[in-house]
């Protein structure tokens, strides 16, 4: 199941419909593919290329530029530890070393049971809450080594399933524009001056 399922295809078409040029949907659709399969498969990229009117090679080109897209399976939980400046000076590197030792893997690899992939990441915008990490892009602020161990234990026990969806799922709330409320896409080739700008000329001689 690497092309979009019927249900996801419907979502994909809705996402695509919000852009004046279909190719703009490439990144959101790559996320959708990753949500479906846990990573981005070649078949998914082919399907996306069909949907946005480009080539699989171009989709791969875009996909391979961005850190978040994985082109091979990763663990159920992606644990990203920040070691950038604010975290570094507050113990982020020590936290990463502890994680590597306790999980028995180096950053960039996955535990043999497929539960956790560990990454050493750049700033994730929680600098005042250092050291910080994300589990499948859900934040853990000011985390201690003990809290890290507890987190891994909870993940193993499946205790955080409600809070942390499997890798690939980002926002669980999606935007939905009701048809009757939509203003419509602004086609770059054919949208006139918006009507409300005419107000600027009103009473110009007053």
């Amino acid at each position: 199941m690497a092309r979009f399922s019927e249900e996801n295809l419907e979502t994909a078409l809705e996402i695509r419909s919000r852009y004046p040029i279909a190719k703009s949907a490439t990144i959101p659709l790559l996320h959708l593919a990753q949500e479906q399969d846990g990573y981005v498969t070649d078949d998914a990229m082919e399907h996306i290329a069909e949907l946005v009117g480009t080539t699989p090679a171009q989709v791969l080109g875009t996909c391979s530029f961005y850190e978040m897209f994985k082109r091979e399976p990763v663990g159920t939980y992606l644990v990203n530890i920040c070691t950038n400046i604010s975290c570094q000076i507050m113990g982020g590197e020590e936290l990463l070393h502890h994680a590597e030792h306790s999980l028995g893997i180096k950053a960039g690899s996955t535990t043999p049971d497929g539960l956790v992939t560990l990454e050493d990441v750049e700033c994730i915008a929680a600098c005042t809450e250092a050291p910080c990490l994300q589990v499948n892009y859900r934040y853990r602020h000011r985390i201690t080594i003990e809290e890290f161990d507890q987190l891994i234990e909870d993940l193993r026990a499946g205790k955080l399933a409600d809070e942390v969806p499997p890798h690939g799922t980002l926002a669980r709330t999606r935007q939905h524009i009701p048809a009757e409320r939509a203003a419509g896409n602004a086609d770059p080739a054919g949208v006139p001056e918006p009507g409300w700008l005419a107000r600027n000329a009103e009473g110009a001689d007053a």
């Binding site: 919000r18 996320h31 961005y66």
Partner: peptide
């Protein structure tokens, strides 16, 4: 959108605009 603040004829005026949520990938 549901309350008429975004989309077509915002607050009953001639001002209409869609806001599309888009996200990056790192």
């Amino acid at each position: 959108y549901a309350a008429g603040y975004v989309g077509k004829d915002i607050l009953g005026s001639d001002f209409s605009v869609d806001i599309v949520l888009h996200w990056g990938a790192g």
